[in-house]
């Protein structure tokens, strides 16, 4: 009962906060609501026994990505943007597309059959600790994707610098 109550609170807060993120006209307010949203999602991850993912969610998403968003929002002078029309005129059709897709996805959930369970039960992960189990998996079985991820980050760093710098001389 307590678990359902916890989940209900988190689900309700996440949905309300994501609606707030999407509907605020001032981007700074949107970023602030998104910060709260990410903390709630991290709480949901803790509820699912994924403490390392929860920590990463707070550090990377709330700490790095949102600060980057906030910097850009504050860097650009958006004062006169706020007077423009914020929402596309065809929003009812977008609403019907999204609602229809939601109905399709939730209807498909009914026919989902869970596959066989893996080797990482809650007791096994708890005896080994989550970070250690995840690290073992990441550095053995997923070593090659891990290297590719580092390459993706390198490309992102170089690309961001190249795209955002001013031309030195034209």
């Amino acid at each position: 009962m307590l678990q359902q109550l916890f989940f209900g609170y988190y689900a309700f807060a996440i949905i309300i906060l994501s609606l707030l993120v999407v509907t605020r006209s001032n981007p700074v307010h949107s970023v602030m609501w998104m910060l709260l949203l990410f903390f709630h999602i991290a709480g949901l991850y803790l509820f699912l026994n994924a403490e390392f993912i929860a920590a990463i969610q707070v550090i990377v998403y709330a700490g790095a990505i949102l600060v980057l968003f906030l910097f850009v929002v504050l860097l650009l002078n958006l004062r006169e943007e706020l007077s423009l029309r914020q929402v596309a005129g065809s929003w009812p059709s977008a609403f019907f597309i999204v609602a229809g897709l939601f109905v399709v996805v939730t209807a498909a959930l009914g026919s989902y059959v869970p596959g066989p369970v893996g080797a990482y039960s809650i007791a096994a992960v708890r005896s080994e600790t989550h970070v250690k189990a995840l690290g073992k998996l990441l550095y053995t079985e997923y070593l090659f994707p891990f290297e590719i991820a580092s390459l993706v980050l390198l490309v992102a760093v170089v690309g961001a610098v190249v795209l955002a710098k001013r031309k030195l001389r034209s």
Partner: peptide, 19 residues
């Protein structure tokens, strides 16, 4: 699914590129 659809609705309707 609900959060995904809210995000998709925002992407389809909002005209501010940051949002």
């Amino acid at each position: 699914a609900a959060v995904f659809m809210i995000g998709m609705f925002g992407f389809l309707t909002r005209r501010n590129i940051i949002i």
